[in-house]
Design a protein around this nucleic acid. Structure first.
Lengths: 223, 223
DNA sequence: TCAAAAGTGTTTGTTATACACCCATGA
DNA sequence: TCATGGGTGTATAACAAACACTTTTGA
């Protein structure tokens, strides 16, 4: 290949950092340094030699001071859509953060998904991509557990699934399914939440026992 | 952002073109122009203004003379792995092609997934990513149908699912599940395959009738 | 008329769902 | 002792899986 020079920066790495706030998902935005009313997803141009994922975790650490409990690439976004940088491609990463440990640094703030600030088109597409990624890998990966602290009650876990799936779940059925999957281990601790019987605390600890899907599922999303 | 010049090309767009050959998936490779024993995935550096997906379909058209029946981004790959180009990032696309219409142009050839030629590490990662993408979106998207010609018999469709899932399926149960999903429409044609009763031909034509998943599934892939 | 492949009615076992209930605690 | 939230045994309905069968063709 012929050697030549390129005027645009190669690409950016953007982070869609997500936590559970109240009864909704929230996304971390950073205030624009020049126009103070504008917000955007935090991003960065990787140093030479820096891997994509390393750039994403650096962005997260700059924003929160801590690493996300889950990092997953969403994809490359470009297709002519505008972005705060001058690049024409950005690689987006999803990062999950338990709300307890998620204190934004100065200039950063959580926004509930419902009342997000206006974003550049490319970043808006990333947020949509992140939402889809959460939905679709919810039963492939421990998404819910990464949004919770290390120990939690089964009711908290159920509430998290209800938030993520956006539907009510039956308590007994939820627990039976959990038990069948061998995903959680009970601790010797209980937590009293004001009134009512104290709830036992659990932690995420999958045993290597898998039950394969039965049958074939034709659950297509139509074009 | 400060204006500066970059020595490397921004990025490449690579295509993992997949078809069903015999009883296995096959991937399209292109012969290296300098070292004739080396093969690689077809790729391209996008023109300015060309979208990522447009670049991917161009790569496919150059290789096969036809557009894939399904195009889906797999992700951005880099992380220091080597690639035929000098870029440090590539965006990979999965393209599905029915075997009937898939005649490679000069310099291109299909290789069954089992005996693929050695690839640069970054491209090897893309092939793995494409395989995972096929597996995971098999029951979210009409993958099997895009690997078949427009009309097909139910046995052909079942064989395609058996290939993709790598397991035998029960004939009656398979058909019942298909019927419940309203995904195919019978044609007024039959095809006689030598001996045995002729099979009716069907085509993919989903009706807008969805049956939601029951319950919660904790089918995690453990880390 | 037999082999081979297509296609279908019915039974069986498994699993999600729901109901109904008991348990433990604070006010 | 009552309201509140945690936790569980059991019945019911829905569904995947299998079996057993009929149909239609080529040799």
């Amino acid at each position: 290949m012929r050697e030549r020079l390129f005027r645009t920066a190669p690409y950016t790495v953007d982070a869609v950092l997500v936590t559970a706030m109240g009864n909704e998902l929230a996304i971390l935005l950073v205030r624009n340094s020049s126009e103070r009313e504008r917000w955007s997803l935090p991003w960065r141009i990787p140093q030479t030699g820096e891997t994509l994922e390393a750039a994403a975790t650096t962005v997260a650490k700059d924003a929160l001071g801590e690493l996300p409990t889950w990092v997953e690439q969403i994809g490359a976004f470009g297709d002519g859509k505008r972005h705060p940088s001058e690049t024409d491609v950005s690689v987006a990463y999803l990062g999950l953060v338990p709300h307890e440990t998620a204190a934004p640094r100065a200039g950063y703030a959580w926004f509930q998904a419902a009342d997000l600030r206006p974003l550049a088109p490319r970043q808006r597409a990333m947020v949509e991509g992140a939402t889809k990624a959460i939905q679709s890998s919810l039963d492939q990966a421990p998404i819910a557990f990464r949004l919770l602290p290390p120990t939690f009650t089964l009711s908290e876990l159920q509430q998290m699934y209800e938030l993520l799936l956006d539907k009510r779940l039956h308590k007994a059925s939820f627990r039976r399914a959990l038990q069948a999957a061998w995903l959680v281990e009970p601790m010797d601790e209980w937590r009293s939440e004001g009134r009512g019987r104290p709830a036992q605390l659990f932690r995420y600890l999958p045993k290597k026992k898998r039950r394969a899907h039965r049958g074939v599922r034709f659950d297509f999303l139509y074009p």
